[in-house]
């Protein structure tokens, strides 16, 4: 069902760069389609002013766009990641397909606009597509700012984030009461707490969901890679463990996209390939979860 609903891709990369056609899903509040795999920047893109590592990050971004990726996510909390993304975008000629997602992360509500402007300057974009309140920090002050920016056309979508299963009660209250477009939560084959309440609520309220920490910072991959990938993984077009795990995440009907972070070109290509081809149906999802939990 999820695969069927996600089969149409609205925006393609330039023909010269096109290789694969990643599965896309729609942002419920607008109907805009985005690929189900995005690119996170936590840790991996925080490389400071190291020119060699900055070029490696730019190469990852190049491969990401080449494979049809669009959404890149960052935060002021992530050290130099925003500046490194800005460096990469400049080097790549500012790809038009970029979906720029960032966050506001400051305890003072009045200083939120300044931080957002600093973030925008670091990215080097005219405006962000999505701005989220990071970890719900001072959300009561920041959300009105973001809604006002959206009304003025200075950002296209507004969201909130949390991670590692924290503050879901508060997140649910905000989802039920505020006209937000996105939530970002931790979701993977082992961290499934959001299935209980957040994901059903997101479907009910027509809110897009970004899944962060899809591999538990790589620990999940290290944990399962000692075991053989099941033969039936090919039924969903997964050739590797990361693809298998990503397909589980993005096949949930409420999940709009997952944002694995990496500093290696081979990994971003592998991740984007998980966004192509079939996605598991409900029965296969149960099978994947049971298989991984039994390892």
């Amino acid at each position: 069902m999820a695969a069927g609903a996600a089969a149409v891709m609205l925006r393609r990369p330039p023909p010269a760069l096109a290789r694969a056609a990643p599965v896309t899903k729609s942002i419920p509040s607008s109907g805009e389609q985005i690929p189900v795999v995005g690119l996170g920047s936590w840790i991996t893109f925080n490389v400071g002013d190291d020119p060699e590592l900055r070029d490696e990050c730019a190469a990852v971004m190049h491969a990401f766009f080449r494979e049809g990726g669009r959404l890149i996510d960052s935060s002021p909390m992530y050290g130099s990641s925003q500046a490194v993304i800005g460096y990469g975008l400049t080097k790549l000629g500012r790809p038009a397909t970029l979906f720029a997602a960032d966050k506001v992360w400051i305890s003072s509500g009045s200083r939120g606009p300044t931080q957002i402007e600093e973030s925008r300057a670091l990215w080097g974009v005219q405006r962000f597509d999505l701005l989220q309140v990071h970890n719900l920090l001072t959300w009561e002050d920041h959300l009105p700012t973001l809604f006002a920016m959206k009304a003025a056309g200075r950002v296209r979508y507004v969201g909130i984030t949390t991670s590692e299963g924290r503050r879901h009660d508060e997140m649910a209250r905000i989802m039920a009461s505020q006209p937000i477009d996105f939530v970002q939560v931790t979701y993977n084959v082992l961290d499934r707490e959001v299935e209980e309440r957040i994901l059903p609520l997101a479907r009910e309220r027509r809110i897009a969901v970004i899944a962060n920490r899809p591999f538990r910072q790589g620990a999940l991959i290290r944990q399962v890679e000692r075991h053989k990938l099941p033969g039936w993984a090919s039924e969903v077009g997964a050739a590797t463990w990361p693809q298998f795990l990503l397909k589980f995440i993005v096949s949930h009907p409420a999940i709009t996209c997952a944002i694995p972070a990496t500093s290696r070109v081979a990994h971003v290509v592998e991740n984007m390939n998980a966004a192509a081809g079939p996605l598991p149906d409900e029965e296969l999802r149960h099978r994947i979860a049971a298989y991984v939990q039994a390892l």
């Binding site: 840790i43 991996t44 490389v47 400071g48 590592l53 991670s163 500093s263």
Partner: peptide, 13 residues
């Protein structure tokens, strides 16, 4: 949450 960088980035710094 406060490990913001990889070992490679840190030791290259």
């Amino acid at each position: 949450d406060f490990l913001l960088f990889s070992p490679r980035t840190y030791y290259r710094m």
